[in-house]
Design a protein around this nucleic acid. Structure first.
Lengths: 148, 148
DNA sequence: ATACAACTTGAAGTCAACTTTAAGTCAAGC
DNA sequence: GCTTGACTTAAAGTTGACTTCAAGTTGTAT
C-alpha cells in the first residue's frame, strides 16, 4: 500500500513541502519513486517519520537525526555511536523536564497573582497581603518572581 | 549596585550581544545608562532577565514576552490580557511535558534496545528474542518503535 | 485527447534569535 | 595624556527549519 506525498503529509499533519525538505536533507533515503518520479510512501516510512517527529519535539536537530539514520543504515559497527547519541538526548530530555517543572511552578504562581489582582481590580492588592493570605505552595515564590 | 553589560552577561551565562539584542527588541526598557551612554544593570534587572529566560525555555517567543512586559508597564487595565497569556503558556507547558514524557519512554526503550544489541554485538539479537526476554515496560513499545 | 489537480525540481524567500563586523566612544590604570 | 579593554551603534551575516515561487511533468477523469 503506497501513499503520495500529499496523503502522507495529511496523515502526519505536516505540509508536503516539509516532507520534500526532509527528503532533500537525506532524512528519507528509502522512500521509493514511481517510474514517473513521484514519491511513493509506505506505512513503514510513516513509522520512521513519527520517530523523527518525536525526536524533533524533544529538541534534537535534524542534523543529529540524520546522523542517527546514517548510522542505522551502516549496520552493527555503529551501535555504540547510536547508543551514545540516544543517551545524550535522554539527558537533554531530563533537563528539559526539570526546566518545564520550574517554569510551571512559576506560571502557577503568576496565575494566582493575576487572578487575585483581577478579583481586586488592581495589582496593588499584593502590597497589602499578609503571608498567611498567600497560598502555602506560593510563599517561597513571592520573593523569587516579584518582577513583571 | 550596578553592573556593566559584560558582568550581567556573565551572571546570566549569555553573550553580551544577546542582552543588546534584547534591549533593541524593547525587552529591557528600564535599564539605566551612564552619562556616557553605557548600560547600568541592577539586580532588579537580573530578576526580570531570569524570568525572561524561564519563559523562553518554556517556548514563549520574544514577541509575546514583549507583549507581557508592555502590558505590565501599562498598569491594571491589562491584568486580564496578562492572565490570558499566562494561561495559554501554562497550557503549552503541560502539552510539552506530555510530549517529553512520551519521548522519554521511547528513548528508554531504544536505549535498552541498543544496550542489548551492544552486548550481543549485533542488532540481529532482537530477531531471536522471546517476548519474555523483553523487559515488561517495553513490551508495548517493540511494535511502536521498530524502525531505526 | 484534453483538462486539471497534484506532483516534480532548484532557487529564492522567510522567520526567529542571535552573532559578527566596522567604526567609533568611554573609563581605568599608568 | 595615553593606552587598552570594554563599551556603543547600525548594519550585515548566520543558522535552522521551513515555505514559496516558477516552470515544468504526471496521472486520472472525462
Amino acid at each position: 500500500m503506497f501513499y503520495t506525498i500529499g496523503e502522507m503529509a495529511q496523515k502526519l499533519n505536516v505540509a508536503p513541502s516539509t516532507l520534500r525538505y526532509y527528503d532533500k536533507e537525506g532524512l528519507l533515503p528509502f522512500v521509493e519513486r514511481s517510474s514517473g518520479g513521484i514519491r511513493m510512501f509506505k506505512d513503514e516510512d510513516m513509522e520512521w517519520l513519527r520517530l523523527l517527529g518525536c525526536l524533533k519535539k524533544a529538541g534534537m536537530p535534524l542534523k543529529e537525526i540524520r546522523s542517527f539514520l546514517d548510522w542505522s543504515r551502516q549496520g552493527d559497527a555503529t551501535i555504540s555511536h547510536r547508543l551514545e547519541l540516544l543517551e545524550k538526548q535522554r539527558q537533554s530530555v531530563l533537563e528539559q523536564q526539570k526546566q518545564l517543572e520550574d517554569t510551571l511552578l512559576m506560571l502557577d504562581y503568576k496565575r494566582w497573582y493575576y487572578q487575585t489582582a483581577q478579583e481586586a481590580g488592581t495589582c496593588a492588592v499584593h502590597d497589602s497581603l499578609t503571608p498567611e493570605q498567600v497560598p502555602e505552595q506560593f510563599r517561597a515564590l513571592t520573593a523569587e518572581w516579584e518582577k513583571g
